[in-house]
């Protein structure tokens, strides 16, 4: 009896030691390691983007720069035509994200709350749009937008070339076929399915038609999901290089500009010669320029972002 009690206590103490002392230390080491890998490139980028030329070959300068300069930033602003590129990126990503946020909620609500013939088949098509990789249709999408038919205008045989315009992305978003729209429709559907039907019944009794019910009762409740969808859509459009490089090769966005930057940076001369060290630093300055707007979004929206995903419980 005594022995078994001692054994029990000893075991408990050991468990306590493992879970309250040893594990936190291991966890801290792992987490610090991962966070280092996450922060390192960013810190490095911030530091080296402002490093003056005379510090590049100075072995005593590793992190903190002695001479600061805005030279690389201004070079890169000229090189990638930053104001225009930024405007292109914003007009593609922000506008598409807003359209996607609204249209996908409409479609998701339709799928979640109404019964009609062929709904099952139609919804499996939504899943298909998620699963089929964009490669399969991008070639013909190019043709669709190269010779785009606008309903009444086309009666006279004319087509519009939407390649290299943001409209190619807006039109897709408007008809629920934008970048990863299927996923957003799925998320909205899961959310609306979980809403209590009493809300709709009450609205119906109060004399709302379905559109009013949707606008006044359902959408305000779905605010968190809308934020999630908007943020994801914004980020994915911002970082997309695949669709932009095919549908809008000449319309440079920040992502495609950075992708092409390397070649252009290495054409830059430093007093007649190519200076690889300087060019590396210039690349970092370019990366910083392309990240900066998203970093601002991140600083302000990070908390809403993580919380909204947790609260909406995407899979449902």
């Amino acid at each position: 009896m005594q022995d078994s009690q001692k054994d029990f206590l000893r075991r408990k103490r050991r468990e306590h030691l493992a879970s309250h002392v040893v594990w936190p230390i291991i966890r801290a080491i792992i987490l610090i390691g991962i966070c280092f890998l996450l922060l390192y490139p960013l810190l490095y980028m911030f530091v080296s983007a402002f490093r003056a030329k005379q510090d590049l070959y100075n072995p005593s300068v590793i992190w903190i720069t002695r001479h600061w300069t805005m030279e690389h930033i201004t070079t890169l602003i000229d090189l990638i035509n930053y104001p225009k590129t930024l405007m292109n990126t914003v007009s593609i990503s922000v506008v598409s994200a807003v359209i996607q946020m609204l249209i996908c909620s409409l479609v998701g609500y339709g799928f979640a709350r109404f019964r009609f013939k062929g709904k099952g088949i139609l919804f499996s098509l939504v899943i298909l749009t998620i699963i089929i990789p964009p490669h399969a249709i991008i070639n013909s999408l190019y043709m669709t937008f190269r010779f785009f038919h606008i309903p009444i205008y086309s009666l006279f045989g004319g087509t519009v070339n939407l390649i290299n315009t943001p409209a190619a992305f807006w039109v897709q978003a408007l008809f629920g076929m934008g970048l990863r729209s299927g996923l957003f429709i799925f998320i909205y559907r899961q959310f609306f399915r979980g809403m209590p039907s009493e809300l709709e019944n009450a609205a119906l009794i109060d004399g709302c038609n379905p559109v009013q019910t949707y606008l006044r009762v359902m959408l305000p409740n779905a605010l968190m999901v809308m934020v999630t969808v908007f943020m994801f859509s914004l980020v994915w459009h911002w970082n997309d290089t695949y669709n932009t490089s095919i549908l809008a090769p000449k319309l440079k966005t920040l992502s495609t500009a950075i992708a092409d930057m390397k070649i252009e940076v290495f054409r830059l001369k430093d007093g007649g010669d190519t200076n690889p060290m300087l060019n590396q630093v210039r690349m970092q300055a370019g990366a910083l320029l392309s990240i900066a707007p998203m970093m601002v979004v991140f600083l302000f929206g990070q908390k809403t972002f993580t919380e909204s995903v947790e609260r909406t419980g995407i899979v449902g």
Partner: peptide, 23 residues
């Protein structure tokens, strides 16, 4: 049913013209 189809109508246009036809 018709209201439901009304809600998803933009998507129906989209799936035909920007997915099935291109595919």
């Amino acid at each position: 049913g018709l209201t439901g189809i009304g809600f998803i109508s933009p998507w129906i246009v989209g799936i035909i013209f920007f997915f099935l036809v291109p595919l």
